[in-house]
């Protein structure tokens, strides 16, 4: 039997890895919700689209690499740029024109955008999952205090922390970030104070797409698989995390993402086998209880309550 210390450490890393993916997803959704009250259900499809950009479009069963053949630094830059570009394109082509519509209309438009992207991928690549061998070496386990942690877990946690710190710096220390935070808190007031709506919303979409691409790269490195529906489960949890964190609160969304990752992992570890299949049901039951206790979310922004 593995000693209890390393096992707990292993579980901690498992929770942080899952939480990192959820936190990045939640932040991507919260950024856009903050500036234009849009719950972007196409976010998960952005993740899948970025992953498929690594492959040559083909309905043949064996995948051929396309951008996946680029040297690693260039590959990362190009995929992140594709994520940001796709997200910005969705704002320019779709969401900008319905900004004044009610939130339900915008939400339906985001569903439609997501389905369109999914069917484009289905048409180009077929429904059979494709395999991509990306950075095989980073799955090697490393030993930390007796716990065997796959290197990719450490990279996932590290990348998430770096992204979050960079974004915090961007939001706190740059004019651009201050405008975005202001817009997230109270968009109308921010506009009255001179914040340019198109510019700030487009920037939010770019950062959101950048985060979607990051999730895509981590997922494909971990699973070795590209599937047209691959971003959707994370998107759903990410959306729930933004609600738990308090709609419009970026810090809350990130914290809630980590919290959902922790609760999911702990339930997986502690539940008896018969109940483990109901793990997600219990996670969502906990979400309902939490929302009954704090409907505005755990870290609600001052202006959020009346909007939600």
């Amino acid at each position: 039997m593995t000693p209890i210390g390393p096992y707990i450490l292993q579980i901690l890393f498992d929770s942080l890895t899952l939480g990192s993916l959820y936190a990045m997803g939640a932040l991507g959704i919260a950024l856009i919700f903050g500036v234009m009250r849009l719950v972007n259900f196409a976010h998960g499809n952005f993740v899948a689209f970025c992953v498929f950009a690594l492959l040559v479009p083909s309905t043949e069963v064996t995948a051929r690499v396309f951008l996946g053949a680029l040297p690693t630094p260039l590959l990362i830059l190009v995929i992140l740029a594709i994520g940001a570009g796709l997200s910005m394109a969705s704002e320019i082509i779709v969401f900008r024109h319905i900004r004044q519509a009610n939130p339900v209309t915008m939400m339906i438009a985001s569903f439609a955008t997501g389905f369109t992207l999914q069917y484009i991928l289905l048409f180009l690549f077929s429904s059979r999952p494709k395999t991509v061998d990306l950075w095989a070496g980073i799955s090697t386990p490393v030993t930390i205090a007796g716990a065997h942690i796959p290197l990719l877990q450490l990279i996932t946690i590290g990348v998430t922390l770096v992204l979050l710190l960079s974004l915090t710096w961007l939001l706190r220390r740059t004019q651009f970030g201050i405008e975005m935070r202001g817009a997230a808190e109270d968009f109308m007031m921010a506009r009255l104070l001179g914040v340019r709506a198109n510019r700030i919303i487009l920037a939010a979409f770019a950062v959101s797409g950048f985060l979607a691409a990051s999730i895509g790269l981590i997922l494909v490195a971990q699973s070795g698989t590209a599937d047209i529906k691959m971003g959707l489960p994370i998107m759903l949890v990410a959306f729930v995390s933004t609600v738990i964190g308090g709609m419009g609160n970026l810090f809350g969304a990130v914290m809630a993402g980590f919290l959902v990752g922790l609760v999911t992992t702990l339930l997986q570890v502690t539940l008896p086998l018969e109940l483990r299949g109901f793990r997600d049901a219990l996670v969502y039951a906990a979400v309902i209880l939490m929302l009954l206790w704090r409907p505005q979310g755990l870290f609600a922004s001052a202006t959020a309550k009346e909007r939600v």
Binding site: T2, D14, L21, Q222, R279, D280
Partner: peptide
């Protein structure tokens, strides 16, 4: 030992840790 996961789980690291914890 037995454990469960879901096809679309982004990570099954907790399940793997349980296998690693076997004697």
């Amino acid at each position: 030992g037995k454990d469960t996961f879901k096809n679309d789980d982004p990570s099954i690291s907790a399940q793997i840790s349980r296998i690693k914890a076997l004697a």
